[in-house]
Design a protein around this nucleic acid. Sequence first.
DNA 1: GTGAAAGCGCTAACAG
DNA 2: CTGTTAGCGCTTTCAC
Lengths: 344, 344
Amino acid sequence: MNMKKEKRVTIKDVAGRASVSIATVSHVINETRFVSDDLKGRILAAIEETDYQLDMMAGSLRKQSTRTVGLIVPDISNPIYAELSKLIENNLFADNFTLILCNSEHDPFREKKYLDMLRTKRVDGVIVIPASADIAHINALVAKGLPMVVLDRPVSGARADAVFIDHERAVFDATQYLVGLGHRRIGYLDKSHDVPHKAPRLDGFHAALKVHGIDFDDTLHVEAGVTFEDGASAMGRLLQRGPRPTAVIAFDDVVAMGAMRACRDRGLDIPDDISVVGFDDMPLCAYTVPRLTTVKYPRRKMAETACALLLERIRSGMDGNRQEIVLPLEFIVRESTAFRGEAP
Amino acid sequence: MNMKKEKRVTIKDVAGRASVSIATVSHVINETRFVSDDLKGRILAAIEETDYQLDMMAGSLRKQSTRTVGLIVPDISNPIYAELSKLIENNLFADNFTLILCNSEHDPFREKKYLDMLRTKRVDGVIVIPASADIAHINALVAKGLPMVVLDRPVSGARADAVFIDHERAVFDATQYLVGLGHRRIGYLDKSHDVPHKAPRLDGFHAALKVHGIDFDDTLHVEAGVTFEDGASAMGRLLQRGPRPTAVIAFDDVVAMGAMRACRDRGLDIPDDISVVGFDDMPLCAYTVPRLTTVKYPRRKMAETACALLLERIRSGMDGNRQEIVLPLEFIVRESTAFRGEAP
DNA sequence: GTGAAAGCGCTAACAG
DNA sequence: CTGTTAGCGCTTTCAC
């Protein structure tokens, strides 16, 4: 095939062909000042004929703005982050921004490396779901004037704008709901990584138990990774430890689904033998058997808010005070939770 | 807070501080020619002190290469594309490339708009899962010298490199498997969009039926969209049409799961009353109840091959013949398929 | 071994 | 209304 790259056609070629200055060409392209119909016509024709296409890079160098933003997520293959990314991408697309996708793989080191790359590529801003609670590198970039918003996870001391949810409250409510159903032995499938929202969630769990005078049994606390398999094996471990719980709260829906599978494999019925509640409300939750009771993660609102915050800060050139927005959560009762056997 | 943007520190500042020429600074940064230890030391120190960071954009303009590639997927919130994206991102990261993510939303028009943006941003190449069979705009870019690879869907007449799977064969095998289990009334949950792999798959289905002397009953053919809900409602429609099938083949796992849900809601057992087979093998398949029999989509191999092809073409400057690689599929039998009631 | 200087393709003063 | 021109920050000949 041997496809030779033809010489790139530049604004100069267009100008030459239309017998005008390159300034005028630039101005009709960007609609940045009035140009007579005559010239405009010739220029448009020349663009057409030469099949000219703007080189944004050159423009970006000049304008010091790339109309590109970076998004750092722990793992795009987690459905919740996938959906969030999609919503963010949609918002940005509407504003003619383009998205650089970065998977940190839950690795703070990789996150940092990506942050460097993004800066080097001169993105106009970045949205990051931080992999760990250590956000010194994030704050450093903010200090250098890079617009950033931290998403999803309540890291303390952030100097970037932030939008997240009230993790503690959400788990508190979920726990309280289970207690209301008569459950007293409630398992907690925690996250094994040390993510920023791990502590607040566990706090919420403990707080709810305390309010209802339930002692926390440490054997009911196990940790799980990020896959279905991790959820299943964690649940397996939990079930081996002494008297089994009548309900469990999982760190997210993926873990909850793995857990349901593990129960099922041991002949335990959900929710008759064990109630399970998830976290996130992935679309799938309404289609599992049984349908999963869960906490709804406000992804649409989160994406919109994050983009609004970021774009505003990009527009304003980092003026204005830091914003922190906490989004409300919704508890969605489906079929995976029920009264405890003997309870009212 | 009012964060003033400090003046950007450039290569000039570093050169000044180290009392050398900017050329030398550039050379130590890029390790592109020998520099004495003395100067190198001073330069490195100056970089450190000024917290200088390379501006890739300027370099890219000069070098005509951005070390960025575009990825266009129909919908990143589809788990299979999410995983594919992740694998691709990983491959590129290893080579220090950066990824611009684009959701076409299954819309050819939006795909085209994104392609324009990518070109304008001077990406070094693009990987695209085409939204439709019309790929004139893709070929046009290839003709202009942009390295591209078309993924997943067997569009005809592509001038870009391509890597996809044998859709026809896969569905042929799946159908044959069901027939082997004694099924004769097999439903087909097709895709409603006119995607490039729609026809080959249906061909495979028909071919298998024909081989076994089974007449195709048109009432068993329904179309579904892309969500769980779409799958459920399509299955609902199918069940309303005359004698029900004893098995169904779904266009993808998402549709299959929606279909399972719909069966369940009507008191039908899977697989005792109806067998269902999906397509893709999302991780979730092993965790549903029952576990889903499906065709395994070779995502890892696909990601690797696509990246290898693209990077090679970028490296070689579009030399060499067009490549087309067809990846093998694997049929994964789990619990959602069984012998037809009365059959052996 | 090192430096000077010419651009990469565009935008935006500034000058008419 | 339109054109001239000075950069944006870097890479890379070419010369010493």
